[in-house]
Write a protein that binds this DNA or RNA. Structure first.
Length: 828
RNA sequence: GCCGGCGUGGCGGAAUGGCAGACGCGGUAGACUCAAAAUCUACUAUAGGCAACUAUGUGGGGGUUCAAGUCCCUUCGCCGGCACCA
């Protein structure tokens, strides 16, 4: 055996071996419990970054650990390979997006393979390939059939320079992430997925996910934003139109002194038409629309409005109150109209003060009486109904119920639950995405592409114009088609789908990646789903994770999958920092994984990352820390090499005798070994505390050096220690473990070995150290036989000179004993 | 503004309410060496002391407890998310 650890030679060797033998290929096996371990697949930017290394290292520890524990582990990898950067690259260097993307994938696959992760590469998927996006399109059609995919006119983010809609996440501080021009709101006919149909279930079933971080569930819950209230109907006095408003405070209906519409509300034009208010209102609407979304929804911006000249009739009182247009009312929440109750709503209060609108108090706090004249801020808390006709004196909660019932009987209102969650805008005016499989026929209207005509393939080698417009619009061979219904001339949809659509089902495709008849077969998803452990960055807490959950629920209702949730357990890993801030090209503080792997090896890189911080926390990169990890692996290597050198009998040593029969030194080292097995197992399995697991292994190695150097080794004991040590290291540093395993005489891969189980007998201690305290302060320690009765321990301590000194002339009030740990003497 | 998370040595970080600082990095001294690297050994929270030891110490203040980094209240700082949602 080489005396020196040579990472490069050894890693290349084992990576090649694993690939040749398809060591990590899996298929369904009814005899083993399954475990689906999944890391979020990357966008193929071309280069692995440290965040990826961290993500995949964590996943690999779990995958390998579960394999050794006897699970049939599915551990796949693929590429989220549609998306904007490929088009940007095409515009910049003229490389077709497909070529650019596939080159990037090839490079990243090579880098990923150099990490030695236990992927079943036969299951690799790339969302930009027709054999994948064909099924993305097929799924779109299933959604369409069920009414879960639809087209509607809506106000969307529009970048004038790029000439396309943008997803919310592509708008950074009100500007286009690509060209930095200000994003506008534009009314456009776009495709949506009806996520709101599952709003309630998406919220409720968060409770079925105890294995998700609380933080992520809270974020999703806030995003869904359920609110309970009522829709109440007001009537426009001048036109007779009925205007529904949504409110969570129907109990304040008697306090309504005005109403405000959103600038884009369709009634605005109708009410002002032909009146002297036409011009000033239109002027105001234009001004509001010019604001960016950020400004419009910022609490900083002053609330402004303008009177329309119209009035509405309060359904409760029959009173006529003025109708305004305001900049703080959102068209797409509730009904785009808000009743103004200045006395009991903060915003309304400010608005009413500014425009000298009247106020009316209709809720009074218990044991107090407020007056409009002296009101300094809105009273928004609970109280008793007042100025509210027959409802006076009720608690406002009771008032809420009764008022809604009353209005409901009159046909002027009903209970309603509202969600902040909106339907998901999935169409993009982009080239590099999955084409939406729809054809527009002038005669028959929009028609789905028949399933047997899928995929609707993207033309390759397209030319990009600097306008930013999708090239598909300039490819008649793509968009000129015939209507599937009448056979007449028709135009193909040139919009493509948001890449989040592609990533909302890839975990299902992994279970059946080569199926050319179906997106995935029910039997395979039934076997593998759910994903037992999903690992990725917290930046996807809402978008990706919500969309994927929505997909699974919709597919379940179509009978395509049998599960309710995609990801049973979720681990959100922290960022990799350098000098306290996130590694990024723009900050110039990146470290290239490829260089680190070349210099120190993949095992070192992985070990450092796992050791430097718990997985859910941010991790500070440190090259010195990396060197420390390398040093440890060298020490690990040497303890095996030196032991074999000093004691050649080791390799063929018979199993050691029972613990009780062994000398003290052997008992001691076995105790360290078995307590390490216990700790590492618990840390990995229950807590994901890989950092403390690694530190326990380091302590074991330190103890083994001491054992080795102290005197004659017991070959059976040392052999057990080294074999188990190598098994413990295997999930963290798989290459070196494989090599050491072989050196120790192992014939199969260490990764197919069983995970060590600790021996209770070896953990037993003969002597224990007991600390004694006086009033909670440590005053001394005492070693006693483990079998000694606690009362005897106490007596021994109280008789000690040190104890007597510490107690002095004080009186012992009581003595508290924690068996095996400490004795606290309370004195006064 | 609201909701989370985090504040522990020079640094990364450990601690089911029970010895604060495991493990690693860095540092100091020494061994080996002609020398260096590598490796090994010892020490390494702060203050005092030759030492045994003593006092202080987990952002600040208060509390519960025999015992608090850990639980409760309060306050400050940093990071993240949401933010006119009627």
């Amino acid at each position: 055996m080489e005396e020196r650890y040579q990472h490069e030679k050894l890693e290349t060797k084992w990576q090649a071996r694993w690939q040749e033998t398809k060591a990590y290929k899996v298929s369904e096996d009814q005899d083993k419990p399954k475990y689906y371990c999944l890391e979020m697949f990357p966008y193929p930017s071309g280069h692995l970054h440290m965040g990826h290394v961290r993500n995949y290292s964590i996943g690999d520890v779990l995958a390998r650990f579960k394999m050794m524990r006897g699970y049939n582990v599915l551990h796949p990898m693929g590429w989220d390979s549609f998306g904007l950067p490929a088009e940007n690259a095409a515009i910049k260097n003229g490389t077709p997006p497909a070529d650019w993307t596939l080159d990037n994938i090839a490079n990243m696959r090579r880098q990923l393979k150099s990490m030695g992760i236990s992927y079943d590469w036969d299951r690799e998927v790339a969302t930009c390939l027709p054999d994948y996006y064909r099924w993305t399109q097929w799924l779109f059609l299933q959604f369409y059939k069920k009414g879960l995919a639809y087209k509607k006119l809506g106000y969307v983010n529009w970048c004038p320079d790029c000439a396309t809609v943008l997803a919310n996440e592509q708008v950074v501080d009100g500007a286009c992430e690509r060209c930095s021009s200000t994003v506008e709101k534009k009314a456009l006919d776009q495709w949506y997925f009806k996520t709101t149909a599952y709003a309630q279930e998406l919220l409720d079933s968060l409770e079925d996910l105890p294995g998700w971080p609380e933080k992520v569930k809270i974020m999703q819950s806030n995003w869904i934003g359920r609110s309970e209230g009522a829709q109440l109907i007001f009537e426009v006095a001048e036109t007779g139109d009925r205007v529904p408003v949504y409110t969570t405070r129907p109990d304040t209906i008697f306090g309504v002194t005005y109403m405000v519409l959103a600038a884009e509300h369709p009634l605005v034009e109708k009410v002002i038409a032909g009146t002297s208010y036409e011009e000033p209102v239109r002027e105001f609407v234009r001004k509001v629309q010019k604001l960016t979304d950020v400004d419009r929804t910022s609490t900083e911006v002053e609330k402004e409005g303008v009177f329309t000249g119209g009035h509405v009739i309060n359904p409760a009182t029959g009173e006529k109150v003025p109708l305004w247009v305001g900049n703080y009312v959102l068209l797409d929440y509730g009904t785009g109209a808000v009743m103004g109750v200045p006395a009991h709503d903060e915003r309304d209060f400010i608005f009413a003060k500014k425009y000298r609108l009247p106020m009316k108090l209709v809720i009074q706090p218990a044991g107090d009486n407020l007056y409009v004249e002296t009101l300094r801020e809105a009273y928004v808390d609970e109280g008793f109904m007042d100025n509210s006709g027959q409802f006076d004196g009720l608690t406002n909660q009771e008032g809420k119920r009764q008022i809604v019932d009353w209005l409901e009987q009159k046909g002027l209102g009903e209970r309603q639950i509202n969600f902040r969650l909106r339907d998901w805008l999935i169409s993009r005016q982009r080239y590099w995405g999955a084409p939406i499989p729809i054809v527009y026929c002038p005669e028959c209207g929009p028609q789905p592409v028949p399933e047997d005509q899928l995929p609707v393939e993207l033309p390759l080698n397209v030319e990009f114009r600097p306008t930013g417009e999708s090239p598909l619009n300039h490819y008649p061979s793509f968009h000129e088609t015939t209507c599937p219904k009448c056979g007449g001339k028709a135009r193909r949809e040139t919009d493509t789908m948001d890449t989040f659509v592609c990533s909302s089902w890839y975990f299902l495709r992994y279970t059946d990646p080569q199926n050319d008849q179906q997106a995935f077969s029910r039997s395979k998803t039934d076997y593998w789903m759910n994903v037992d452990q999903y690992i990725g960055g917290v930046e996807h807490a809402i978008l990706h994770l919500m969309y994927a959950r929505f997909f699974v629920k919709a597919l379940r209702d179509m009978g395509l999958v049998g599960c309710d949730e995609p990801f049973q357990n979720l681990l959100t890993q922290g960022m990799v920092l350098m000098n306290g801030s996130k590694m990024s090209k723009s900050k110039g503080n990146t470290v290239s994984p490829e260089e680190i792997i070349k210099k120190y090896g993949a095992d070192t890189a992985r070990l450092f990352i796992l050791f430097a911080a718990p997985p859910d926390r941010d991790l500070e990169w440190s090259e010195q820390g990396v060197e420390g990890a390398y040093r440890f692996l060298s020490r690990l290597w040497r303890i095996v090499a030196l032991s074999l050198q000093e004691c050649p009998a080791l390799k063929s040593a018979a199993p050691r005798a029972e613990v009780a029969l062994l000398p003290k030194a052997e008992k001691d080292i076995l105790r360290v070994l078995h307590s390490t097995i216990k700790k590492v197992t618990e840390d990995v399995e229950n807590r994901f505390n890989f950092n403390t697991a690694v530190s326990a292994v380091m302590e074991l190695v330190n103890a083994l050096y001491q054992y080795k150097d102290k005197g004659e080794m017991d070959p059976g004991v040392m052999r057990e220690c080294l074999e188990q040590l190598v098994r413990l290291v295997a999930p963290f540093a798989p290459h070196i473990a494989e090599e050491l395993w072989q050196e120790l005489g192992g014939e199969q891969s260490v990764h197919t070995e069983a995970w060590p189980v600790y021996d209770e007998a070896a953990l037993a201690k003969e002597e224990i150290e007991v600390v004694f305290q006086v009033n909670g302060k440590v005053r001394g320690r005492l070693t006693v036989p483990a079998t000694m009765e606690q009362s005897e321990v106490q007596e021994t301590i109280l008789a000690m000179e040190r104890a007597k000194e510490a107690i002095g002339d004080k009186t012992v009030v009581k003595v508290i004993s924690v068996p095996g740990k400490l004795v606290n003497i309370v004195v006064k």
